[in-house]
């Protein structure tokens, strides 16, 4: 009789423990389907492709700033225009630097710092029109592993599937990840 109770107790405990393990995150894991967010992946070849292209028209500009005699105009998620502003009466749109997922940049002593999605990269523009990457600080922006917002269930990020370049709303079946 007592043995039976102990066996039942052990059985129940192991069941409870397995539930806790399954939760895996701070919130309890939902028992069915819920609204949540799912990562959008892109290959590293595309997401990390930094390049210089010819000057192009400015469409939907983001932020502006100056560096030396240059005017820089960012295009959210695309990169920035470099404009030679030595003569402000006749600015010369020189080139465009393509940085996927870029939202802001800063420059010191000719070294550009920019976010490339969630990485912070630093690079120089070479006189031959190329780019020399100096450093890539992976996930320095700290946004990579969870969607924006709060109290959201989401599909956990699987880095083997590529770079997270965005999030989309989805119906998720018992998602393991939750952001408070």
């Amino acid at each position: 009789m007592i043995l039976n109770r102990i066996i039942i107790l052990i059985f129940c405990s192991s069941f409870l423990l397995s539930c806790v393990e399954d939760d895996g995150s701070r919130a309890s894991r939902p028992s069915g389907s819920v609204n949540g967010m799912s990562p959008i992946y892109q290959s590293e070849e595309i997401a990390y492709q930094i390049s210089v292209s010819e000057a192009k028209d400015i469409v939907n500009p983001g932020k502006i700033f100056t560096y030396q005699n240059f005017l820089i105009v960012t295009i959210i998620n695309e990169g920035f225009h470099l404009i030679d502003n030595t003569n402000p009466s006749n600015p010369n749109n020189m080139l465009f630097v393509n940085i996927p997922g870029n939202t802001d940049i800063a420059v010191k002593d000719g070294v550009f710092f920019a976010n490339n999605y969630n990485d912070m990269i630093s690079f120089k523009l070479e006189s031959n029109g190329g780019i020399s990457l100096i450093e890539r600080l992976s996930d320095a922006m700290q946004n990579g592993l969870a969607p924006p917002g709060n109290n959201i269930y989401f599909e956990c990020v699987d880095p083997s599937r590529g770079v997270v370049v965005g999030w989309e709303s989805r119906i998720l079946n018992r998602p393991r990840c939750f952001k408070q």
Binding site: I64, F65, Q68, D104, A106
Partner: peptide, 9 residues
């Protein structure tokens, strides 16, 4: 020798 941004930086 540093870039300088505006109020939205």
């Amino acid at each position: 020798n540093t870039s300088s941004g505006g109020s939205l930086a």
